[in-house]
Amino acid sequence: MNMTRSEVLERLQEIFDDIFLDEVVVTPELSAKQVEEWDSLLHISLVVAVEEAFGVKFRVGEVEGTGNVGEFADLILKRLNGTNA
């Protein structure tokens, strides 16, 4: 799957729309601290949905190591491009 960073962010917006009850506008700078609803359980649902939507797998602690949605999108791109680093 060849995607650009902005296409990944667009797809993430769709996933956020499905998961969050309140409207959350996805930007590269957005982080969990800025969204009250984004707790540990919702984070799990987010990871489950992202793995399914993009057909990727993350390693333990990898997603939690990202500081914001932009870094998360970069991680998704790495997996889509088959990069394990």
Binding site: I44, V47, V48, E51, E52, K57, F58, R59, V60, G61, E62, V63
Partner: peptide, 11 residues
């Protein structure tokens, strides 16, 4: 349907 290793979750 899905195993999510990073979260220890099965779907």
């Amino acid at each position: 349907k899905q195993k999510v290793e990073s979260a220890g979750v099965v779907v």
